[in-house]
């Protein structure tokens, strides 16, 4: 029991980190984290099943001669039930869960506060949408209100980059010529680290930014649209 507790504490500690998807700081990342954990458990069980059957098959066959080799019954059991029916049922459940979790990731309300994020090989420029791009613009730091969903409209001015703040949400690519709208939300005030997640040349290693979530009331400075 104590070993389990110690093990899970260790596991929890291992999951911490400023860029960790396993340490969610917002609802999008949190629902994906739960979803991921469930998938890992199911995948583990499936793996154990397959390997278990394989191990038994190797052991078993040495003792039995002939068996029901080539029979239709064996074919149906392995190929139809285990090979087709079993994965199809698991995958149907997975697909349903995928669609459900996916719904929470998409932009549904276009009138949320929106910031424009422009990526380039020199770094990230953030500005509230509608501004002339100079007023309220920040470099490598996006300031948003904590506790509220916001939209980031992501575009690139040169090659393809990717906007990723793992503790808040999944990633969305910055493509030249085609802005992508992405939903993020930070539950509590703080700094959330982000990095470019699409290989963009020699500067890719260091292409980081941060999202500063400010306390929701009474904060005039820091750029609200």
């Amino acid at each position: 029991m104590r070993a389990c507790l110690f093990g899970s504490l260790l596991l929890l500690a291992a999951c911490q980190g400023p860029l960790s998807t396993l340490d969610p700081g917002g609802p999008q990342a949190r629902s994906v984290f739960v979803f991921t954990s469930a998938m890992v458990l199911v995948a583990g069980a499936a793996f154990a099943l397959v390997i278990g059957l394989f191990a038994i098959a190797l052991r078993r066959g040495r003792r039995v001669t002939g068996g029901d080799a080539g029979s239709v019954r064996a074919e149906r059991r392995w190929v139809v039930w285990l090979g087709i029916a079993f994965p199809m049922s698991v995958l149907t459940v997975l697909l349903a869960a995928t669609l459900w979790v996916g719904e929470g990731q998409f932009v549904r309300n276009d009138r949320l506060p929106t910031w424009r994020a422009t990526a380039s090989q020199g770094g990230w420029q953030f500005a509230p949408l509608g501004s002339d791009g100079v007023q309220g613009a920040t470099t490598d730091r996006l300031v948003i209100p904590a506790g509220e969903p916001v939209i980031v409209e992501i575009v690139s001015s040169d090659v393809i980059h990717s906007f990723w703040v793992p503790r808040l949400a999944g990633k969305m690519d910055a493509v030249p010529g085609k802005p992508n709208r992405h939903l993020i939300q930070a539950d509590t005030p703080g700094t959330y680290l982000g990095q470019c997640a699409e290989y963009c040349g020699v500067g890719h290693d260091r292409m980081r930014f941060e999202v500063l979530a400010t306390a929701p009331r009474g904060s005039a400075a820091g750029g609200q649209p």
Partner: peptide, 29 residues
């Protein structure tokens, strides 16, 4: 594309279980 990508696991698993089933009902060495 998400659904299709999951679906392709089915013909793959047909083969995996056929192989295991062959070993199960044969005389593996």
């Amino acid at each position: 594309f998400s659904a299709a990508s999951m679906l392709v696991a089915v013909p793959t698993s047909v083969q995996i279980f056929a192989w295991i089933g062959t070993l199960w009902s044969g005389r593996p060495r």
